[in-house]
Design a protein around this nucleic acid. Structure first.
Lengths: 254, 254
DNA sequence: AAGTGGTCTAGACCACTTG
DNA sequence: AAGTGGTCTAGACCACTTT
């Protein structure tokens, strides 16, 4: 009798589903399953109750149940096999690379983030930026450059360009929250971002700003982000201390 | 009359849909849309025909059409807005980080990949590996170490550990195809992988194997991959020349 | 043969955006 | 007010795996 092949059903898990809520049903179900997995109530390898009976038990149609489960499959928390069932993945449960700013990443992991604004100006778009955003070369854009610190240790240098048409930025607010939070507050929502991660040696200026030795490597990330209308709203080129930062991703094969 | 707000409908695009095919309908539709976007027949910013009418025109139900579109939204090729419609994203259309090996990446971009096998042996699992895979420390595992070359230039050093229970490896085949291709051929399918990307200075041995100067940085990637049963089947720790390799990812905010 | 997930249908109602 | 995507239902049939 292997516990790994035993069907697990947590009865109290879905007691507080709210059909009147604006939060979609599939999302409520998905979140409850996710927290059950992350908290260990559903152990690695545990087999889930099958879709049909789970739907009947909760009074939810099968497509809705399927969508809830699919969310977690996409996150790499569950694995489905036709003819067999659905299981919690083995191995450490990690968080996906989310669509958040470094500031939020650090705050949620209690790293006490802070920001030093080095540059805050409007400039004519350099060609490299104009090209990434389809903005006419020479048009005015925001240019900001910041050092991000975690518990007083500098971990990254963040340089960003944004079309001035997109948003009116506030220098003071940048020191107390992330750039993305400020964009969100102004009603600008990022929908798609494309990023490239690489590495190189730190420049002399970077070694000073990051307090690292000459000859140290830095992780680099270039990102272009687009809003819901498909228009580019941000181009950033960042570099990170390698001893304080790395990127985690989860890949899922459908 | 902006062309970007004009509804685009490509009539000949879906002529050869095959309902008898084992390939799902939504997948056929999705692939045809994707190639229309990548080829430029659907330009950046172009507005798609709405879901309902597209479904009626093709004789396909709306949920199936929606799923086809959702695939491309998840890939970052399309953007949907309630009350507005679906558009092709602005900006360069890039490929997602796929669940493939470096070998396949290089081959599909015509980089003429080849492999030098440095190590091919069975060893007792080092603790670092045993921990990542939940294998008992001391049990036998495959240990392979390879240099990957693209057009005769060394671009990466790949070190992998695999449980011997998972698969019987062939040293010769490793020189002519990727590790993943060999696993696939033996019926082992990767479903989920978790990876961490970082950077550091190359070790003396790595500078020699990669033909780079002393003091050069390398990109590093550690990956644990799981099969459809949720069991760990591979742990790899790789390093890449920074002047020949970088990681591209697309993030989508749902 | 029984049980599972994978696909597909034909509707329904709602929330949001735009004219 | 009209049009769009977002959610949800209640079925159906199929492909695959295990017993």
């Amino acid at each position: 009798m292997e516990s790994a092949t035993e069907t697990t059903s947590i009865d109290t898990l879905f007691d507080d589903l709210d059909r009147a809520s604006p939060v979609p049903l599939y999302f409520q179900v998905s979140k409850r399953l996710e927290s059950a997995i992350r908290s260990g109530h559903l152990a690695a390898g545990a087999k889930l109750e099958n879709e049909v009976s789970l739907g009947e038990r909760l009074g939810i149609s099968r497509p809705t149940i399927r969508r809830a489960i699919q969310e977690l499959v996409d996150k790499g928390l569950l694995v489905r096999r036709r003819g067999v069932g659905t299981q919690v993945v083995q191995g450490p449960v990690t968080r996906q690379v989310e669509f958040t700013s470094l500031f939020d990443d650090l705050r949620t992991s209690h790293q006490n983030p802070s920001t030093r604004v080095l540059t805050f100006e409007r400039v004519e778009a350099p060609s490299a930026f104009a090209e990434h955003l389809g903005v006419r070369q020479g048009s005015l854009v925001h240019h900001i450059r910041r050092v991000r610190l975690a518990s007083e240790v500098p971990v990254a240098i963040l340089e960003n360009y944004l079309p001035i048409t997109a948003i009116d930025l506030n220098r003071e607010a940048l020191t107390t929250s992330g750039l993305y939070a400020q964009l969100q507050a102004k009603g600008v929502t990022m929908r798609v971002a494309k990023q490239r991660i690489g590495a190189r040696l730190a420049t002399p200026e970077e070694t000073e700003l990051l307090s690292v030795d000459v000859g140290s490597p830095v992780l680099t990330m270039q990102r272009t982000a687009y809003d819901s209308a498909g228009a580019a709203v941000e181009y950033g080129t960042h570099c990170y201390r390698t001893d304080y930062y790395s990127f985690e991703t989860t890949l899922v094969n459908r």
